[in-house]
Amino acid sequence: MLDAAFMSRWMSATAASVSREETRLTDLDSAIGDADHGANLRRGFTAVTAALDKETPDTPGAVLALAGRRLISTVGGASGPLYGTLLRSTGKALGDTAEVTRAQLAEALGAGVAAVARLGGAAAGDKTMLDALEPAVEALGTSFAAAAAAAEAGALATVPLRARKGRASYLGERSVGHRDPGATSAALLVGALVEAAA
């Protein structure tokens, strides 16, 4: 069973992973975006861990809702609202239960991913974070490791795609051949579940 402490570990592991990969995320974003994805996400998840150090929500849903609110209030660009919506909607879907199963988390994360799709008007195949998140949600029923592998494979599969949403879509054909930074950071978020579980 997954409790509030697990979700806090997940957010801390994500913050550490984003911090380690900040330069890589920014390099990916400089090729097809505005070169701020790494710095923006590091700032956002640093604010999330600081908020969780101060407040200790007592349910998994409350942890993720708090994290989502922090991201929306501290991260500029598109990534703040998108990641904030993902975590807030996931938290809301989990409700007030003190402990949840991995299957319940998968279902709630699916609701979060659907909220992101509505907000950004994107779908899988558009070269966005959804290309990593959708396969991850499907694999989460199997294991955290399977979800992490599916997210990484989804992010890698964005390389040959032409971007149809977001800043990269302005580049048209020139977006082909570049790995999507949003899908890459989404894979970091999913991968952090493995660390949280360990």
Results as ranks from 00 to 15, higher is better:
G44T: 06
T46Q: 14
T46C: 07
V48Y: 03
T49K: 02
A50Q: 13
A50N: 12
A50D: 15
K54A: 13
T56Q: 13
D58I: 14
P60D: 07
P60R: 08
G61R: 05
A62K: 14
A62H: 12
L66D: 04
G68T: 02
R69P: 00
R69H: 09
R69N: 11
R70S: 11
R70N: 04
R70D: 03
S73W: 08
T74S: 15
V75N: 01
G76I: 12
G77L: 13
A78W: 03
S79E: 02
P81Q: 11
P81H: 09
P81F: 09
L82K: 00
Y83K: 03
G84P: 05
G84C: 08
T85L: 04
L86V: 03
L86Q: 03
L87D: 06
L87K: 06
R88P: 00
T90M: 05
G95R: 11
D96I: 10
T97G: 15
A98I: 12
A98V: 15
E99F: 14
E99W: 13
V100M: 06
T101E: 13
R102S: 03
A103F: 04
Q104V: 12
L105D: 00
L105N: 00
L105H: 00
L105I: 04
A108L: 07
A108H: 00
L109M: 13
L109K: 01
G110T: 03
G110H: 03
G112W: 00
G112F: 00
G112E: 00
A114K: 08
A114C: 05
A114T: 14
A115E: 11
R118H: 10
R118I: 01
L119D: 03
G121C: 02
A122D: 01
G125D: 10
K127G: 09
T128Q: 07
A132L: 09
L133R: 01
L133F: 09
E134D: 11
E134S: 08
E134M: 05
A136L: 12
V137G: 08
E138W: 05
E138V: 14
G141W: 06
T142S: 15
S143V: 10
